[in-house]
Design a protein around this nucleic acid. Structure first.
Lengths: 209, 209, 209, 209
DNA sequence: GATGAATGAGAATTCATTCAT
DNA sequence: GATGAATGAATTCTCATTCAT
């Protein structure tokens, strides 16, 4: 960060990479791959454009690196200790809440994954689905066991449920749509809690009285 | 389609516009606004590029036109007669089924709306949310009445439910993610029916036994 | 060539292509592929840079097109009527003279082929060797018949001779080296004639008395 | 080669320079000045790029150094004892054989000189022609004396002959062209001997029977 | 209405070179 | 002597858009 007298910055590899990734994430989240500009990334990071190519090979490499970072965070956040004494219903609740809470704090990731999923096929790289599957395999296990033990409906396809939860939450935090339908920001603190509990009950109990 | 002596194609206004819109929709659906290329659209439509500017002003105008067409179809498809003798639960089922069936046949629209929603804010134009709200206001009414009459849980926020349904279905038909998690194409005929009934029961009854 | 009031030039495809090829040839001849600059080509041709990509796809495409043009001219020039009554020695003399004369007027081609031959392997495109072989197959035939009939040494490999002639002439007209060894320009009119006769006798009779 | 505690390589000035020159020669030979990349040179030599600037000032300096090395080897190889009892014809044969043999083992030099000659004018530095003149002045002397004593044709211009020999051999060992015309590699061992004798007789006796 | 050549601004990528340690 | 990050000026290539016919 310190500039010397000639405006040349002295940094180490890691700092520069981190600055670039941070800037890239912000812009990719906002505009997607095609909409983001390399110059803008470099400018936002206040790093010489050339470094992007030195560290990430090209724009696609940068995208992949950003994606990987986000997926790692997602997987990290969604996996975690579960109360072993709790029953399937309670455990499912825990996982859903954790997932919602993570997304509420990281709405950018939702958008990034949405861009990536729309673009899937072009730019093959880290697999979003693999990461999601890994992140939510706990939930998958809970559902499976719950179905077997009769806690959940016998006709459920656990994967279908997992997918449903992912879509429900992703949609919610992708934002704008809800924002305008309700005239408010879904990521606003209080609203998140409300949505979280709604999601839990919706998934567990449906809407019927 | 007949060429005149100078190798020019003779078409009327409507044909040319339709060809362009069709091509544009296909490409916008596939690559989004930033990823699609004007030249590609003209090429795919086999129409002179210049016509795009003549008819739609510019790329943004073309996008808006495509979007409007899709929204109109969406609204048309989701509105429709409901069995007035059916109870709220049955009516909700009908609407959800109709919505799912429409999306199953028009997965492109889902993608287009997803691109648009990710890009929201830039390129102000036809409001997706308005269209959705209009299209699903029947469902909204049904839910509201159902809550009032005790058919549905008393603590429900009807708009939250509508939004949930939209997200659930959009996610499903956006495609790739489900495709790879299940190793199959969610838009494949048989699968659609399965998903439709799953969605109905999931929303109405949740997952608990 | 006529500019309208806004500086936009109206030309047809062929004119523009020709202007670009001419400029490109000049610069490629002078600086080779890696040394030449696209901007410089466009500038020299006074044509918008974009047109190069429209007509030739990219820099490599432009190089290939230039090369092909030159090879075509070379082949054209080296093939031609031969006096059927002349003996092998006279016919060979004719062909060599014709070849030398062509190169003397087109020293650029010699340089272009030299660049290409140094770069061979990268940028696969029109084959210089094929073109040369085609252009000089008359000479090859003359040599073969001459050997068979005893006009030329029995131990000659006609292809080796053809190649030798090519190299001798190419070297001469590539220029600079001779220029500095002799302190004069080998392409200077009078000098060409001298070299031509030297080459003929050198090849036919060698240096021994 | 041993790394010190900070992962730095300890080498002396000469080793590093030699590594760089070797790598540079290889790449310049392959791709010419404009096609070679400083990074590639440093990478191939496994030496820090900065050293190139420390030792050779810049890319041009490196080129000149490489060129000078090659020219020195060329001069060294082409000069040498001649049998004083042999006649001009035999001495010429000796020199030509020696020259061919040297080039056969050092085809890279031929290419380097070709690049340099094509680029002549830009990058003034060591004079190829001077070196060649020095290297082949023996041959020049032999030819001159041979002409005076009647061993060679009286109308010969010795310099023209020297130049012809240079071109003939350079062309041959520049490679690709002969390679493809004959479908084989001209630098292959057996082929070299064949070419050598061909060259000798061609120059001395021409092709006539 | 239709055509296709032309355009300029801009985007990604590359390269030789230098700085601080 | 050695290192590797940093730099800015080029360089190739792209894109939406407009003009003259």
């Amino acid at each position: 960060m310190l500039d010397d007298s000639q405006g040349r910055k002295r940094r180490d590899r890691d700092t520069t990479q981190a600055l670039l990734l941070e800037a890239a994430e912000r812009l990719f989240v906002r505009k997607g791959f095609d909409g983001a500009r390399i110059d803008e990334v470099a400018g936002l990071a206040d790093v010489n454009k050339r470094m992007i190519y030195a560290y990430f090979k090209d724009k696609v490499g940068l995208w992949h690196e950003v994606l990987e970072h986000c997926l790692a965070r997602l997987v990290d956040a969604t996996r975690g200790e579960l109360d072993p004494n709790a029953d399937a219903r309670e455990q499912a609740t825990q996982v859903i809440r954790r997932y919602v809470d993570f997304l509420a704090v990281n709405p950018g990731i939702v958008r990034l994954l949405a861009w990536e999923s729309l673009n899937d096929g072009r730019r093959p790289g880290p697999r979003v689905d693999d990461a999601l599957a890994r992140g939510l395999e706990d939930l998958h296990g809970i559902l499976k066991r719950g179905v077997e033990r009769g806690t959940f409906r016998a006709d459920l396809d656990p994967q279908l449920i997992v997918l449903g939860i992912v879509h429900l939450c992703s949609g919610w935090f992708r934002g704008r749509l809800g924002a305008s339908l309700f005239g408010e920001d879904p990521t606003r603190p209080g609203r998140t809690k409300q949505f979280r509990e709604h999601a839990v009950r919706m998934i567990l109990d449906g809407i019927s009285a």
